[in-house]
Each structure stands twice: as structure tokens, then as C-alpha cells.
Design a protein around this nucleic acid. Structure first.
Lengths: 203, 203
DNA sequence: CATGTAGACTAACGGTTGTTAGTTAGTTAT
DNA sequence: ATAACTAACTAACAACCGTTAGTCTACATG
């Protein structure tokens, strides 16, 4: 048994990673079902059959893209939930979580949002992660309403309103790369959070 | 040349309308590309070939769903733009427009959001309608900032934040049918608009 | 030098796709 | 009564789908 060194290509990723990243890009443009293995192969300049030296199946690619992202969100939420800061700061942390993940994997976010229903074996697992995430999110809102940090409106509506905006970040973040992460997160935080902040002192 | 009476089925729609509505429902669940003509045929209890007595092509179905909805939004925006009310009331009217259209065509909204890229001949037309809609929307926000009815934040971010929430209505509106239109529109208006309202006097 | 492996290839498979052709039973119009 | 139309059917086509089998070459390891 000897050490094995993974060969890296010119962009510093393994071939498998390159295939998955390219797939995510195509999935964003046309959706999982409309992208064929021959499309994907052409995009990485090999033949369709050669893809199978690196991946198990088309399904497997989708699973890799979605599950890893979903787990990133779950882990991020766990950290935020257990952190000892104000509710408003927790909400700001959630905004940053979405901005950061979306910046480093814009293409994958499209699959997470639009192609999760094509997961087969992992569908149930994905749905449980999403359900838990939304429940944690709404709990934070509720406790903010109790402590009067958040305006007293329907917590589910507040949660969905913020979450759908964050989930759509992948659509308009690419057009806004002149603003860097911190600026965008701040602007977005202002719009999303000051709106529901009870003592609205922005100016 | 004589009058022609369109035969209506048990649900009071023509067969073509029934097919398109059923298609929209399937498109919402799996996306345009993943739904086959045989799937659609089975859902309306005929054979795939028989669909072509009523529609020209699969493309044609998608076109019918998306373009009519996009034009509804365009017409609605035109009315709101030219109405003589406050900026805040215009925003409330936009919220109502989305709520009402989404209520009466929940399935179609999924295609509008997720399958527009599979339009072929009509893609350019659709994109122009969407572009105009967003431009009108952001103009309303800008004039609201000028008149100080709206908090002074980045108008594009405000617009996208509201619009993405409204675009996602089709996802969570079906779960909330205990609230009727007016209630939902009001709640949503509170969350979306009071947040950016300059003199935030909600309580 | 011999051997093993990674990663590309060609060829082909069985199944599915959207769609067309041709037919037929039932209804409506003249 | 006859002609025309509507809306269903069966059968089939050519193209495309994901995937497998088997092969070849370049390179790393012993």
C-alpha cells in the first residue's frame, strides 16, 4: 500500500471535480433533465462513455452537487443557532451564509433550487435537511419577535420572504460582482433585516 | 359559415384547455423536459398521439402557458404604472397582482419561473417582456425613494428582494389556502412594504 | 524491463423520445 | 341521408437517451 497522488489539471482540480462543476454549469442553464451526457462530455472535451471513468451515473453527479450544498447550509445553521449573539446578528449571519455559499458555488445553487426533485435515493434525506433548516430559521424569527427585536408579523411569511430572496441570490449575484461579498451582504442585510427590525433606526 | 359551439367537458373547459392545465401541473412537479407526451397523455386518459388532435407540439403547450402569463403581468404593470395613487399603493397593487395571478394559475407560475429557457421561437419575446417589467418595477421604487416614501437603499436590491419573494409565491401559496386572497395580500404587503417604508409606523 | 493503472477511445445495447400516418367510431350540419 | 368534422385509436419512425463492453495508449511503479 503506497501513497497515491491525485493528478490535478490546469485549473487545479481533479477531472471528477471538473466534470461535476461543468455539469452544474450546464444544469443551471437548461436544468438537469435537458442536459445529456453527450452535452456534458462535449463541454469537457471527451466522449460520453469516457465520463464513466470518473463518475458512476448522471444521478451521481446531481447527488454530489446537491447533497454537499445542503449539508453546508445545515452545518452553517447549526453554528449560527448555537452562537451567543443577538437575533439580528443571527439573521445577518444567515444572510452571510447564503451569500458566501452562493459566491463560491453559483452554479450548484441552481440545481439545489430547481432540480432537487430529480434526486432519487437521496430525495428523502434532502427533504429532511431542508425541513430542519426552515424550522430552525423560523424558530430564530419567533424568538426575535418574543424579545421584540423583530416586528410582530407572521413568522412563516417573514421567513419565506427572506429565504426566497436568499435562494434566488444565484440568479442576480453573477451580475453584481463589482460589489464584493461584504458590501453585498451588508446591502442585502439592510434591505432584508431593517425592514423587519422593530426599532427601525436606519437613516 | 355558421356559429360553432365549443364542446365543454365536465370541468367546464375545452379539451385543449384541460390538456394545457394538466401539462402545467406536471411541469410544476418535474419540469418541462422531464415530462413526456406519454406522461401527459396518461394524465388526461388518452394516448400520446391523440394529444396532437388538440395541440401542435410540446413546445406549443409551453408557449401557451408562459406567454399568456407573462402578458398578464405586463398588462397589470401597465395599469399600475399609469394609475394615480401613492407609490406605496402602487407597490401594494403589484403584490396583489402577483397574489391574484398566482392563485388562479399556480401551476403555470412554476413554468414561468423555471422553464422559460425552453421556449424557442418565443424566447426573445418573453425576455423582452420580463426586462420591461423589471425596469418598470425599479422605476417605481426609484421615484418612491425620491419622494421619500421609500427608505433610501439600493433600488435594484429592493426590487429583486420583493420580486423574488413574489415569484416564489406559487411554492407556498398552496399550503396557505386557509388565508384568503385579501388576507394573504395584506400580510405579504406588510412584510414586504412596511420594511422599506420610510416612516415605519406599523405597530 | 515488466506490469499495472488511469483515462481516453469506438461501437453498440435496449429503451424512450416527440411526432406522423392512417384508420375508425360517433356526432353535427346540410 | 349524406357529407363533414371531431377526437379517439394502433402502429411505427428516426433520433436520441444513459450506459456497458472491450480496446488502446501513455505513464508510473516495482
Amino acid at each position: 500500500m503506497s501513497l497515491k497522488f491525485q493528478l490535478l489539471n490546469s485549473t487545479g482540480q481533479t477531472r471528477k471535480q471538473e466534470i461535476i462543476k461543468t455539469a452544474a454549469k450546464l444544469f443551471k442553464e437548461k436544468g438537469y433533465s435537458a442536459v445529456t451526457m453527450r452535452d456534458l462530455a462535449k463541454a469537457v472535451n471527451i466522449r460520453a462513455a469516457s465520463l464513466y471513468n470518473h463518475i458512476d451515473s448522471k444521478q451521481d453527479i446531481l447527488k454530489s452537487i446537491i447533497i454537499s450544498l445542503a449539508e453546508e447550509f445545515t452545518n452553517g445553521m447549526e453554528t449560527i443557532k448555537n452562537s451567543d449573539v443577538s437575533i439580528i446578528d443571527k439573521l445577518r449571519a444567515i444572510v452571510s451564509l447564503h451569500v458566501n455559499i452562493t459566491i463560491h458555488n453559483t452554479y450548484g445553487m441552481a440545481s439545489l433550487n430547481n432540480d432537487w426533485m430529480h434526486l432519487e435515493d437521496q430525495l428523502e434525506y434532502y427533504l429532511s435537511l431542508r425541513k430542519n433548516y426552515e424550522e430552525d430559521f423560523v424558530e430564530i424569527i419567533k424568538s426575535g419577535i418574543e424579545t421584540k427585536e423583530i416586528r410582530d408579523s407572521n413568522p412563516e411569511i417573514i421567513m419565506f420572504s427572506i429565504l426566497t430572496t436568499l435562494r434566488s441570490l444565484y440568479l442576480w449575484l453573477p451580475k453584481k460582482d463589482d460589489l464584493n461579498r461584504q458590501e453585498l451582504a451588508k446591502n442585502l442585510g439592510d434591505v432584508l433585516i431593517n425592514g423587519i427590525n422593530h426599532q427601525s433606526t436606519t437613516a
